[in-house]
């Protein structure tokens, strides 16, 4: 069952303090299936903390998070990590690929962890690498590919399990304009064709312009920019 209004993931009144720092101070969020929502705001405003709460990685001090009709707070740690593996995908700014594995093994890893046989996992991995235009890098290790290529491999890995929500935290933060743009084009195209919703954290407007709508986080409070005008 979906939350009211057909939202897939809804958070309300999120608060999270780290010692004296209020990282989140009453933040809200909602996303529909297949929607791309940018989370913008200055550095230190609470964007990553919001993403971590939404993904069940960090537990908020108060507030509620409903995913597909389930309250994340009432789930056990084991249930939450199962949910992350089955329904969520992740892309971060740096260092997510395992350096000892080849690129195709990296992309296949989430499937292998879910118990898929090696051959089948790598075949699916290669399909995703084709969509991200990095299938020719299969046998290379992450240290042997460029930043932009590595990030496309990471996007392929995040989508290989057919997640319903892709969490991307500054996915182009370490790339130049041209490579960042290519990653965003391919990421949004792939996510749309897989009907995955994307929570896209970025402080860059040109990256946010790939989204359907944006919210702005300032001092731990969120503002839905659709309601501004």
């Amino acid at each position: 069952m979906n939350a009211p209004g057909g939202s897939l993931l809804v958070a309300e009144g999120l608060r999270k303090a780290y010692g004296p720092t209020m990282a989140l101070d009453g933040a809200e969020f909602s996303i529909h299936p297949g929607e791309v929502v940018a989370v913008m705001g200055p550095s230190g405003s609470g964007k990553s903390t919001l993403l971590h709460c939404l993904a069940g990685i960090v537990t908020p001090d108060s507030g509620s998070i409903m995913y597909d009709g389930q309250d994340l707070a009432t789930m056990s740690d084991a249930q939450r990590s199962r949910l992350r593996r089955s329904d969520f995908g992740f892309v971060f700014q740096f260092g997510q690929l395992v350096p000892e594995l080849t690129c195709v093994e990296n992309v296949a890893l989430p499937l292998r962890l879910n118990g898929a046989p090696r051959k089948q996992a790598e075949r699916t991995a290669l399909e995703w690498m084709q969509r991200l235009e990095v299938d020719d890098l299969g046998r290379k290790r992450p240290g042997e590919v460029s930043g932009g290529q590595g990030q496309r491999v990471a996007v392929a890995r995040s989508l290989v399990t057919d997640p319903r929500v892709l969490f991307a935290d500054e996915p182009t933060g370490a790339l130049d304009s041209l490579n960042g743009e290519r990653v965003m084009e391919l990421l949004t195209e792939a996510a749309r064709s897989a009907n995955a919703a994307v929570v896209l954290v970025t402080h860059e407007a040109r990256v946010a312009a790939y989204s359907d709508r944006e919210i702005v986080v300032r001092d731990g409070k969120s503002r839905d920019m659709e309601r501004v005008i």
Binding site: A205, R206, A209, S211, E214, V216, R223, M225, V228, I229
Partner: peptide, 19 residues
Amino acid sequence: ADILDTQRAEHLRSMRILT
């Protein structure tokens, strides 16, 4: 602040169309 946010939203709308 509201005027700035309204403009911000308008800018991003244009940027989406251009993108």
